[in-house]
Amino acid sequence: MTILVTASTGNLGRLVIDSLIARGADPASIVAGARDTAKASAFADLGVRVTELDYDRPDTVTAAVAGVDAVLLISGSEVGRRVDQHKAVIDAAKDAGVAKLVYTSAPKATTSDLVLAPEHKATEELIAASGVPAVILRNNWYIENYAGDLAQAAATGVLVASVGDGRVAAASRADFADAAAVALLEDGHLGEVYELGGDVAWNYADLASAIAEVSGRPVEYRALSTEEHASALENAGLDAGTIGFVTALDAGIRDGALAETDGTLARLIGRPTTPLVEGLRAVA
């Protein structure tokens, strides 16, 4: 079976290829799709085939998908443009008769009010309409998303957010990469929609304690209202669009968009998910 990993030079894609090989995939059966193939030279050294794949250039997508059996569609990072980018991969997979399409979506994508959910919902709908056999991986937050908070709180002793007591069932990128590798390699997952999250849903007081443990200094969680948070971000020089996006994310977390976890990720990968402190230490 030949497996194409899109966005292979990104933080998640690299880990997926590592996991595929660690789980016994022949490097020669893996195709690493990359916008800049020079950045994928380390894969070529392992025997992985590297091919150009740019979501914004459908001709490269069509060429990359041709002849492969399974495709991992890693969601794009350009918010507002992702649906069209993903559609290029879905259309190419349908035309090529791909036997399995795995997509990295967002928690409760079809029903969530999270500001990031609509593009994932639209993508899931495109996949369903295409008829391509698929596995949907609704990934919760990556612990690595908190690198900036870790650095700032370690420097100032304060973690600031407007999430209230909202909880996050985060796991490491490596955990989610392992889940993608399992979905690609194993039979029995077609048609499944997996809600994936860490074993523990923690709140921001827990996050502050974890940062304190990693940084070696006390850290206080300062809970702000949405209005107070927006004002603080404005004073820090952020533009209105970014302020709206950040506060909307925090509102989603406050309202429980990332709080649910039922152990599906751990069961899928065959081990416990990465604890918060351990994940933050890796980031630090």
Rank of each mutant, 00 (worst) to 15 (best):
E220I: 10
A183G: 11
G131D: 07
G244W: 13
G76C: 01
D206R: 10
L185C: 10
T264S: 14
P218L: 04
S105D: 04
S209T: 01
T9K: 13
G279I: 05
F245P: 06
V89F: 06
L185G: 05
L20T: 15
I90N: 07
L72P: 12
S8E: 13
A248Y: 09
A64H: 09
T264A: 15
S112M: 01
A174H: 08
R217Y: 02
P218W: 11
L280Y: 00
G10P: 14
L101Q: 05
D239G: 12
A208I: 05
A236W: 05
T51K: 08
P118F: 05
I243N: 10
L137R: 10
P275K: 09
L233I: 12
F43R: 12
R23A: 12
L4C: 13
A38N: 00
I3C: 10
V283K: 02
S77Y: 00
D255G: 10
L20V: 15
R138G: 02
D255Q: 14
D149N: 14
V277E: 01
T111A: 15
G270L: 04
T110Q: 14
E192H: 14
A169C: 00
E192K: 15
T51E: 08
L101S: 06
G188E: 03
A284Y: 06
A32K: 09
D206V: 04
T261W: 05
V71N: 07
R254K: 15
A205K: 09
F245Q: 09
A64M: 10
A109C: 09
R23E: 08
A266R: 03
T2Q: 15
Y146G: 01
L150S: 05
P107I: 07
L150G: 07
G244H: 12
L276I: 04
V246R: 08
L268W: 04
H86E: 10
S112L: 04
D262N: 10
G67V: 12
K39G: 00
S215I: 08
A180L: 13
D113L: 07
L46G: 02
E234C: 10
D255I: 07
S215A: 15
I90P: 08
A201S: 15
V89P: 01
A40L: 10
G67I: 13
A40C: 09
T242I: 13
A109L: 08
A151M: 03
Y55C: 03
D69G: 13
A25S: 08
A28S: 12
G67W: 12
V68H: 06
W141G: 05
D262Q: 06
K100F: 07
A171D: 04
A171M: 05
I17G: 10
R173D: 04
A122T: 07
V5A: 15
E78S: 15
Y221W: 06
A88F: 00
A169D: 03
S231V: 12
D178H: 02
A282Y: 05
